[in-house]
């Protein structure tokens, strides 16, 4: 556990220095502030517009960190050969993967925290405190999604170049969001190949739509505790599966 924390701390220290990350955080905060003006030109929908734009901006920031910084993480260590100093030390390769994932998750949580605080301040100034709870739940859901994407990008980062890893993770992202709708569409088709093919896609790729409650939040609705617990369990199972396969690949990798 100590080794995992050591790697996680170092990953956090490395990623928060990334200028791209700081630019993304800055852009997200700017979007949240700009929604104040966009909201003010709409009549009675002002708060909904602020909430809708802002939680989407926070979500985009999380996805950006997971896909683009995650895709670079392992590859950079291989390319720069910094791994040559770590791998021969008494540390399991699996601990490195878990540490890297935790470090980047901590980075995501940190940037999410800053942008969420800005959003809550905006709402507080406007006197719209009723949205705070739903926003926090929505941010929690999107954080779960970003953790899965971090693991997917780490897997690809350990087997291919950052560009290929980003492309593959983006593909996972889109398929993950479209798979439930596609499955529903193809369920009615007469073609067995299409129907069964879609079923395979649906059960292989993570169903990322499970983490999307942004539309509900805009109307102040919250998912039930059962749904939330099921979603957490789903994320956990998928995360363990992703860690398992990334570790299996990484363990056998030659440097």
């Amino acid at each position: 556990m100590k080794h995992i924390i050591t790697i996680a701390k170092n990953t956090l220290r490395e990623t928060i220095r990334d200028r791209v990350l700081l630019s993304a955080l800055f852009s997200s905060i700017v979007v949240i502030l700009v929604t104040l003006f966009i909201g003010s030109i709409s009549l009675d929908q002002s708060t909904r517009i602020i909430v809708n734009f802002s939680i989407t901006a926070i979500y985009a920031l999380q996805i950006f960190v997971a896909i683009f910084i995650g895709s670079m993480l392992i590859y950079k260590e291989i390319e720069r050969k910094t791994f040559y100093l770590i791998l021969p030390k008494p540390i399991h390769r699996g601990a490195i993967i878990i540490g890297k994932c935790l470090g980047l998750t901590a980075t995501t949580i940190l940037v999410t925290f800053f942008s969420t605080v800005v959003l809550l301040l905006v709402l507080f100034i406007k006197g719209e405190t009723s949205y705070i709870g739903p926003i926090l739940v929505s941010v929690f859901y999107s954080t779960l999604e970003s953790i899965l994407l971090i693991l997917i990008s780490l897997f690809f980062s350990s087997v291919t170049s950052p560009i290929m890893a980003s492309v593959a993770t983006i593909a996972f992202f889109f398929i993950g969001h479209a798979s439930s709708i596609m499955q529903r569409i193809f369920m009615t088709t007469e073609s067995v190949i299409l129907r069964e093919g879609m079923r395979v896609v649906y059960y292989t790729f993570p169903n990322l739509e499970k983490f999307n409650i942004r539309n509900e939040v805009v109307y102040g609705a919250l998912p039930s505790l059962t749904i939330t617990l099921t979603t957490i369990a789903y994320a956990l199972v998928y995360a363990v599966f992703l860690l398992f396969i990334t570790n299996a690949v990484f363990k056998k990798k030659d440097f």
């Binding site: 910094t82 040559y84 100093l85 021969p88 008494p90 399991h92």
Partner: peptide, 17 residues
């Protein structure tokens, strides 16, 4: 890992953080 505790390795042109 038990052996690795007793090993030291310096790669060619070591790269650091």
């Amino acid at each position: 890992p038990v052996l690795q505790k007793k090993l030291g390795f310096m790669p060619e042109s070591p790269a650091f953080y």
